[in-house]
Amino acid sequence: MAAELDAMALAVPAASALVTEIARGGWESLRGAMARFLRRDGETAADRQMELLDDAAQSLAGATETDRDEVRRQLEQRLVLQLAAYLDRYPDMDDELATLLPAPQNPPLADTPTLSAQHNSGSQIVQALGDVDAGSGGINYGVPPRNPGA
């Protein structure tokens, strides 16, 4: 059970990073490293996995603005499962997967608090390391304001 949890602990952020790179148009720069990573299953299996990833990258690039978040979410879910299964079969590949992922931009200092919001489709997220001033109207979630006299 611990090995499965370890595989998921790396697969989730790895899938998120890969999908982010695909969405940014950086898939081509990661493609070769990902192909080498998947070669342990053999040429045929790796080629099939890469074909699926290429198709997913094209789907994400061609998605309309309205569908983009859903396509991205589905791709991320599929990648989590794919990477977790692969890491479950080859647990020694965890370091190699970690090294092929892009480094975070401006990583936080060790003693700096960090905030993260993931998998929040259709919701509003407000993150702050200090005070948040919503103004005199507050935050409107698309619901008409209450009429206190009614």
Rank of each mutant, 00 (worst) to 15 (best):
E28S: 09
A117T: 04
L38V: 04
D92F: 10
D54C: 05
V126F: 08
Q105Y: 05
T112N: 03
Y90K: 03
P91I: 11
G122H: 06
A63C: 04
D54R: 01
Q49W: 12
R39A: 08
M34E: 13
Y90N: 11
A14G: 00
D6H: 09
L75D: 00
T114L: 09
D111L: 07
L18W: 01
G25V: 02
E28P: 01
H119L: 10
S121V: 09
G42Y: 00
S116Q: 14
Q74L: 07
D41Y: 02
E96H: 04
R24Q: 15
L87T: 01
E21T: 05
M8T: 13
P107Y: 14
S16E: 14
Q74E: 04
E21Y: 05
P13E: 15
P91N: 06
R36C: 08
L100A: 11
G26S: 15
D88H: 13
A117G: 02
D88W: 09
I125G: 00
G32K: 15
V12S: 04
Q127P: 10
N106D: 13
D111N: 06
L109N: 03
A63D: 00
L79A: 10
L81V: 11
V80Y: 07
R72C: 06
A14W: 00
R31H: 13
D55A: 14
N106V: 11
A98M: 12
S16W: 01
L38W: 03
Y90R: 13
A117F: 00
Q77I: 12
L38Y: 01
L5R: 15
D111G: 06
F37R: 08
E43G: 01
R78Y: 07
